[in-house]
Computed example of a mutant assay.
Amino acid sequence: MKITGYRTLTAQHHWKRSIGDANGHIPEAVTEVPIVILETDIGLEGVGIGSHADLERLFPALEGEDPRGAAALFDRMLAQVFKSGHAGATYGGLATFDAAVWDLKAKAAGEPLWRLLGGRDRFVPGYASGLDIALDDDELVGFYAEFAERGFVAGKLKGGIDFDADLRRLGILADALRGNTTRPGLMLDANESWQVKQAVRYVTALEEHVDLLWVEEPLRRWDATGHARLSNGIRAAVATGENLTGVDQFRPLFDAGAPDVVQAGAIWGVSHLHRLALAAAARDLPISPVGYNANPAVAHVMTAVPNHLTTEVQDVRFADGLLVDHEFADGGIVLSDEPGAGIRIDEALITEQRDGGGWADPAGPHMRPMRAGLRVVLDGVER
């Protein structure tokens, strides 16, 4: 079996709600979901989800290769962009190809990806995450109630700019999940909107009222020393890493003792997540992928590593034309038993259903505010 080509599609996820964080939000959000389909000389196809960045530059590393050498092909793609570097957007395209290669490998073996990777159980513990900073209190109740009905016991709130609102909303989140547990797991995600002392003051004040499991991305992603200082100053764990591209970028954080929970963005693919999980395990650190809906294949990896904590689930629905054979029950994700990653594509539906805007709306969460981290008073109003 040889890889002969690829094609791309862009599906759209209609969230049917506003999504965003401390950096902004998109009302009635519609976001783009890049899809890559790898083709082979025997007609078998592999699906990867995540990014279309630099695919043309990366593909020569895969063309004519046997996809069953998935781990080696990941390194071959890294070597292909050695001079220009793999960080940033390029890593997204590389990892999406990687996910498609692993899907092919599992299909060729006639096994679900979780089994091929060495997993014993197809259940993956998860937590609910509404990307919810723009939801009003009633909408917040409705979102987390749906996850509570599916057995979820933990949830993550977007916040970090309005203390009183965060405290109230954390109470709403806890109440929504309390039907399944007497001690809901509560997390707060500040999306890099604080400086170190802002974070210490904010989280310490919250901890007078709330038992936080972790605070996520409190500081800029590269601030290894700051994250370590913060971890020493609060009770909650510090979780970070989702925007780092490549295990090598975690080295300064590991050396500083910065992360208490190691995170990885789902868009960065199967091989990256597997290697990062083992690097974290060697340091007795748990791992928690974010953005499962952006690449459901990563959940398979979590069945085969010793240190998976919980995986972020942002919706129980996927993009139009993206058919994912996973279920949400018992507080987590139940993976498919079909060969591959359990992802199928309805190309006609994807083409027909395109409408609306995209994730890169200037008012949305991918545009960092100019005054982020410089607000004197964190009450939601710029002074």
Rank of each mutant, 00 (worst) to 15 (best):
A95H: 04
L278I: 14
E65A: 15
A363T: 10
L116H: 00
V316D: 11
E63K: 15
G46V: 00
K105Y: 04
D361Y: 08
T8W: 08
E65S: 13
S336L: 01
G342N: 08
L44Q: 15
L177E: 01
S288G: 07
F74C: 02
T31I: 07
V247A: 14
L244R: 12
P362L: 04
W114C: 05
G110I: 09
D325S: 12
G342F: 02
A360T: 12
L131S: 07
E207V: 03
L230K: 09
G291P: 01
V36P: 11
N307Y: 09
G20D: 01
R17Q: 12
R221E: 13
W222V: 10
A22C: 12
G46N: 05
A72S: 13
R275I: 02
D223E: 10
I343W: 00
A224F: 07
A134G: 04
A363N: 14
A87H: 13
K197E: 15
L116G: 04
A154Q: 14
G241Q: 11
A299P: 00
N180H: 08
D361F: 07
G159F: 06
K83Q: 12
E347G: 07
E208R: 14
V290Y: 04
R371W: 12
D361T: 02
P125R: 11
P218R: 10
G159Q: 08
G265I: 08
A205H: 14
R68W: 01
H308P: 08
I3R: 02
L167W: 10
